[in-house]
Each structure stands twice: as structure tokens, then as C-alpha cells.
Nucleic acid binder design. Sequence first.
DNA 1: TGTTAGCACTCGCCAGTGCTGAGTGCTAAC
DNA 2: GTTAGCACTCAGCACTGGCGAGTGCTAACA
Lengths: 336, 336
Amino acid sequence: MLDARKRQVLFAIVQDYIQTAEPIGSRTIAKRHSLGVSSATIRNEMADLEELGFLAQPHTSAGRIPSDRGYRFYVDAMEVLPVLTAVDAEIVKRQLGGILRGQQMMLDALARLVSSLTNYTSIVIGPQPHQARLKLMQVIPLDENRAVLMLVLDTGMVANEVITLPRGLTMCDLLAFCNYVNLNLAGTSLSKLKDMDFEAYAGHFHAGAQAVEQAMDSLIAGLSRSEGDRVVLGGATNIFNQPEFRDITKLRAIMRVLDEHELVLRLVTSAPSAGASVSIGAENAVEGLRDCSLITATYRLGGGQTGHISVLGPTRMEYARVIALLNYVTKLVSQA
Amino acid sequence: MLDARKRQVLFAIVQDYIQTAEPIGSRTIAKRHSLGVSSATIRNEMADLEELGFLAQPHTSAGRIPSDRGYRFYVDAMEVLPVLTAVDAEIVKRQLGGILRGQQMMLDALARLVSSLTNYTSIVIGPQPHQARLKLMQVIPLDENRAVLMLVLDTGMVANEVITLPRGLTMCDLLAFCNYVNLNLAGTSLSKLKDMDFEAYAGHFHAGAQAVEQAMDSLIAGLSRSEGDRVVLGGATNIFNQPEFRDITKLRAIMRVLDEHELVLRLVTSAPSAGASVSIGAENAVEGLRDCSLITATYRLGGGQTGHISVLGPTRMEYARVIALLNYVTKLVSQA
DNA sequence: TGTTAGCACTCGCCAGTGCTGAGTGCTAAC
DNA sequence: GTTAGCACTCAGCACTGGCGAGTGCTAACA
């Protein structure tokens, strides 16, 4: 597609621009990278690359910057997976060890780790136990008319809610209902539970059936939400440090996107799940991320649960390093 | 302290500046507020007010803007509590009703409500059950070597964690430990539990005592964290809309403060808890909030639990409206 | 004694100007 | 195919003068 020298020139520009955030001129390349040709030759190559759509010129007499397509070519050309420096790997291993030792995975600690290592904003999506099934329901009386309702899934996930007994519903009734659920619904999948009508099950109470129905719905909703809504951001303020976002309107657009967790969830989970996937600039479906790149990697826990870790930065992103990092982190998380 | 006309002039400037965010000139006041005197007289008053420290002049030939002290005087002078407009009250009542109906208080829904009504950033601090006591410990086996450990407090708060049985620790041992805890530690306060050494209690197991100790510590830490770490932000991006924060460095300073939840917690909880407390500009101990005002109100649930709702905005804030709103919201929350 | 009109003065803002330097594209020579 | 040289372009910067909003001061007035 591109001859060897064009690739060298393109890669030189991408790498320099990632470092400096300044348009790169032909003389700069001739000096900093020893390609063995003069700046004039590089100028010709650059003109060709621009015509092919790999480079862009902010204005007539400025240097060139990579276009989205240029970055795309650069990323695709990294046929060998970029490797992590030993230092980075050591840091990750040590810190991640601490995070994973606790039985519960701390999504926010994970997000913080990734963002502090990359200096970009990180997005962590918690695992979604699609196949989770009801293990046990429990009622724990607190006093005469309050009790904790509790649902436990076989994945170990727990939802609980305090219920105040409405008139006509006794603690005994509630315990009976609980027994009934345990006898008949243990092993039912979360998605089936979601569609279930508990008012019918609770129907043999004289009153208070709706209250029970309402509480159960809320519990199940809580469980399914804590399934999908597990979007955690890390280092959102790192965006402020990028010179391309010194313009406040761009910043605002990005922040607005990050605020909408459902949107973020869709964006991240729609990435192909093999290895680290990169979407550059306008490749992002969302208008506000037109100047951003998103790198997403997937981790897999036992039991078919999967989650994602993403890094959001400007298109001028340290692709190699971030990809290496995400691959490493997801590998370690998956092994835990 | 200030004669009637000086107060009128000061209040006029504060109110106009809150609306326009532009320095206010003497002619503007003479026209918009019918004080019955000419702009020249107002100029004299303004010069006096500046000398007294209530006003400031961005540069020689600009209008005046209120200083921190000016805002402070304005706020203190609202001896009658500002009232909420009927429209606002209606919105709050309807929306808050929905939020409070669910048994668990949804802190983030609350934060969203307050920020959407005020167009500022809101900070909600969840209730801290200082006096919470252990109600019950439970072990729910999931399979041969995994179980959910669960602690329930008398407030209805629940913490749970999946534990994988280490070598030498059987499910029976774990259940025995659980019984032991229930017999001996029910009714113990959370703060005491925090200092407790469970390894000793679990000591009659041949092995696995540390694993239990570790899990218990993590559970208790989780409970005390979900006690205090319940800092929820709403509408953080609203700050972007304020013209005074078009400068990105100020914005960054504020965001950095908001990112540190412990700092925010200290800041908000240190406010005097009677009514709505206002801290203006440099009154905020934190450097980054030098240009902000923070209005904090406290809500009280049953059982001595208290929490806070704050609104963070520029010093040029709609004090009256926000104070009225916070008073109303905290009243409704406290009644629920 | 307080209030007011008038006037000179200040200063931010804006548009226009000229200069500089970085970088390009083209051409002719190697 | 490569290179040196040169004319050209254009953003950025500093400087300028005019405009307008607003002030402070003074002298006259009630």
C-alpha cells in the first residue's frame, strides 16, 4: 500500500506528533530521524501522504499532523503486539495484586490504577453475570415492623433492602413468602426473575402484596443494574491536561458524554472483544468524541462473566503503550 | 453598619451581578433600580462601599463587582428565610416523592435532582450510622468451597463478600465461627468491631484464621466506608457553564478538589449543621475553591443519622434560591 | 449639607498593520 | 530519483489608534 519510505515518514510524524502535539515540518523529521534523505525529499513524500489522506495540514504554511486515517494505519501496522516496559509491568503487577487480593473486585481501584499509569481517562465496566441464578432469599427481622429483604445469587452477588411492614402484613407472612420463594424459585435465572409477577405469588396475603412486589422488583432491578450499570470512571480530570482540549467547548462535549453512563456502556461494550480494539476520532459513533480515541480491552472471569477496561484520550494518543498496558492488565485480571 | 441607601446600592449590585456576570456601573443601577437618586450620587456611594471592602473594581474604568465580604453581607442580611417559588416547590415535591418511595435512599438520584434544579454542582453526603450495631452475621454456602459472608447492622445496612475457603478451613468451621459471632458480638457497635481482632476469635480453627480475619476486616471496612465515603456528585459539568470558569486552570483546580472525596467530605461535614450554611470564596479553607461558594444543609433521618446536601457554584451564586431549595429538600428528606 | 450635571481621564476591547519565522511547493541542476 | 535554492504563504506577535463604558472630581444648586 505504502512504500517503505512513505511508511517511515508517516510513522516518524505520528510518533513525533504524539510527543510534541505540534505540527511536524519536513526539516524536523530530516534532523530527528536519520532517514538518509534531505528535507526536500521528505517534503515530496509528505505531499503524497497528504493527498492519500494520511496527513493533514492545519493551515497552508504549517507542518503536517496525522489524520484519523494516519493513526489507523499506524495502529494497524503494529503487527507485533507492543510490549510493556519492565518498569510498567512491575508497577502493574504489584498494584494490581493488591486490588485483586480482596475477594470483591474493586472497580474504582482498577480505574484509578489504569488512569494513573496512562495519564488518560479510564473507563472500567464491571462483569455482567448474564447467567446468574437465584441462590437464596432471606428475611432478617430488624424490629417489630422492619426487616431486611435479601436476595443472593449463585455468583455471590447480593442485593438487600429494608422494608417497612405495611398494615395487614405480618413478619410471619413475610417469612412464609420467603420460604415459598426458596422452595419454588431457587435456581431461576435473573432475567426470568425480572419478568416475574410476585404479586401473584404473594397473593395469599390479605394485604401488603403490592408492597412485597415493589420491594422484590426494586431488589431485582438493583441486581440487574449492578450488573450493567457498573460503569466506573478514573482520572476524568486527566483530560484537562491535553493541550488539544484547552478549548472549553470540546471539553464540555466530552464531559457530557462521560456523564451519560448508558451511552458509555454501549460505546465500550460494542467494541469487538478480541484483544485491544482501537477506535479513532470520527470512528467513534458519538459526536462529542470526534477528537478522541478509545482503546478497549476485555477481561474474562470464571463463569462466562466478561467486563471491559477502556482508555479515552485525544487521537494523539500513545497507542503502543496503552495497548500493551491494557493487554497486560486484562490478562492479569482474567487470571485472578 | 451601612445606612439604608448604601444597602440598597450594594444589594442592587449583588443582584444584578448574579444575573449578568458583568461589572455593574453607576448608570445601570440608576436606570434599572429606581432609587430616586442620580448616577453621580450612586457613584459616591459605590466609592464608599469599595473603601469599606464590600465592592471591588476589576480595573480602573470598569463597573463594580461584589467582593466576598459583599456577598457575605448580602447573605447575612436575608434575615427572613428566602422562600421557594411555588413552581420549584411543586417540582421538588413530585420528584423527591419518587426518589424517597424506594426504601433505599438513592443518593445519586438526589444529587441529580438538586443539580438539575439549581444548574450548579451538587454534593450529597449519605447518612452516617455512627451508632450502628451488629444485628447478625450470616454465612451462605454457594458451592463446596465458596460462601457469602454477610454482616447486617440494626440500621438495615448490609455488607457482603464472597470468601473462598482456604485449605484447612471447612464450611462447618465457618458456620461455627458465625454462630460464635452471633452469640457473643450481636449488639456491638461498628466502631468497636473495627478495632476487634477476629483472628483470636477464629483461633480455634486449625488453619484459615487469617483468611477469616481478612474477610471480616474487609466487610467491616466496607460498612464503615459505605458510611462515610458516601460522597455523590451531581451535575459536575454544570460548572462548565459558568462564565467565570471559562479559564481552564480554575476549572482544573475545582475538578481536582471534587475528585478527592475525603477532602469534599471534610469540607461539607465541617459546616455548622443548623439551617443552610454558606461559605463564600476565600472562606473556603481549600485553595482551589477560592472563587466558589458552598451552600450546605443537613438532613436528619431517624436514629440520629445525619447527612448533608451541598451546592457548589461560583461566588456569584443565586444564594436566595439555592438556600430556599436546600432547606425545602432537606426538610422533605428528614420527614421521610 | 447633600445632590447633581458636566467634564476630563482611564482603561479594556477591537480592528488594523507590519514584521518574523516556520514551512511549503516549485523549478532547475545534479 | 534526489537535492538545493527561492519565492510564497500564513499564524503569531507586538504595536497602534479609536471607541465606549465608567469613574473621580469639581463647581453649582436646593
